[in-house]
Design a protein around this nucleic acid. Structure first.
Lengths: 138, 138
DNA sequence: CGTGACCCTATAGCGAATACAGGGTCAATG
DNA sequence: CATTGACCCTGTATTCGCTATAGGGTCACG
């Protein structure tokens, strides 16, 4: 009837999402259940497309599905204070910062370990030695 | 009999590993099955402790269990060239570097998004707007 | 009518653990 | 000798965010 009704495949192509992922979002309460066609196909409306785009964008920014659920709920209450939104985003940013710090420390350790490797035999390998609890058993 | 025989709990405490995790490593072929006591308790020997310490150290450095399996196999063949060890470590370092790069780009985006937030109402929220596919529907 | 592209549900798998249910063992105490 | 409580056992389910099957049904085109 309506030319703006979309199948799940259309929605997938338009948002760069796999069909299975869309069904997964529905099952997990991120995307509302659409109505169905006679043949039991999901029939999506433009709102679904908007919502899915929102989800994908937030996922690309690394938000968890829980956080996205919260962001979606907030964005549906447009008169509320935006502080809660800011809190979620800032919390996420802090997590990202922590991950970066941790990974940089990790990389420094890996650098140290790898740079010591003279690439002889395993028995003399500094990498294995670094990992081993005792000086290499002879 | 032997004072150096350890229960799984001892092994756990000495390596900072959970008991369940040790059993998980055994089931997944990282830690060899120890012999059992009469009461069917696992009876670990010092070699197990060394091996588990190795695994934990490698995990702390972010190696995957697959990579650790390979490193353990290499460290058991002490006459082999150490190049394979270096390859695994370097591959891992490259992955870590990529993660850092990706997360820093992500953080930059989050920074941009969050700094725009005037913390008014959701309807005017720049964060929600950034995530939304269209300029906020009025 | 047949083909192929698409859709449906339900279930299992990934990595790396963690948690739990429902029991058995063991050493020490009363 | 019985009981307590700490420890151990197996087996299964859960986490996160998907992805991948299996085994079908629907639909438009030729």
């Amino acid at each position: 009837m309506n030319s703006s009704i979309l199948t799940i495949g259309h929605l997938a192509r338009q948002t760069g999402t796999k069909v299975e992922t869309i069904r997964f979002y529905e099952k997990n309460g991120l995307l509302p259940e659409p109505s169905r066609t006679e043949g039991n196909y999901r029939a999506y409306e433009p709102d679904h497309l908007n919502r899915l785009s929102f989800i994908r964008r937030a996922r690309d920014l690394g938000f968890s599905l829980d956080q996205i659920r919260a962001l979606l709920a907030l964005s549906d209450n447009r008169g509320q204070s935006c502080a809660a939104v800011d809190a979620i985003a800032s919390e996420h940013r802090a997590e990202v910062e922590k991950k970066i710090t941790d990974l940089m420390a990790l990389k420094a350790e890996l650098d140290r370990m790898i740079d010591q490797c003279g690439c002889g035999v395993v028995a003399d390998c500094r990498i294995i030695e670094t990992l081993s609890p005792l000086p290499s058993r002879t």
